[in-house]
Simulated assay, not measured.
Amino acid sequence: MSGQVSSDTPSDKPDLILDLKGLKCPLPVLRTRKALKPLAPGTLIELETTDPLAGLDIPHMCNEDGHTLVSSERTETGHRFRVRRG
């Protein structure tokens, strides 16, 4: 189910939270990839961004890298994503 939104509930506590606010493209994707690389498959991370392009870039990265986009939501300042490592 790579790159798709799964049925996990938003109440699932993430194993790692990344604050990527203030970073511009391509840094949110690069930092997310770097953070995911050492983690075990199935690990849930949450990231917050302010870069408007992250709304496209993070789902695309999940699809390309085989991770599951658990949720994606807009916030007052940008986006919040929950990604499960593939």
Rank of each mutant, 00 (worst) to 15 (best):
Q4E: 15
V5Q: 03
S6L: 14
S7N: 14
S7I: 13
S7M: 10
D8I: 13
P10D: 07
P10Y: 10
P10Q: 06
P10F: 08
D12V: 15
D12T: 15
K13R: 15
K13F: 10
K13M: 13
P14I: 10
P14T: 10
D15I: 08
L18T: 01
L20P: 05
K21S: 14
K21E: 07
K21I: 04
G22V: 08
K24R: 15
K24C: 11
K24F: 12
C25H: 14
C25F: 15
P26G: 07
P26N: 12
L27T: 13
L30F: 11
L30E: 13
R31P: 00
R31W: 08
T32I: 03
T32S: 09
R33N: 11
K34I: 11
K34W: 01
K34G: 02
L36C: 03
L36M: 05
K37W: 10
K37N: 09
P38K: 01
P38I: 00
L39M: 06
A40W: 03
A40I: 07
A40V: 07
A40Y: 05
G42V: 10
T43I: 06
T43D: 01
I45D: 03
L47F: 03
L47T: 02
E48Y: 14
T49S: 06
T50A: 02
T50E: 01
D51A: 09
P52R: 09
A54E: 08
A54Y: 01
G55F: 04
G55P: 01
L56C: 04
D57G: 14
I58Y: 05
P59C: 08
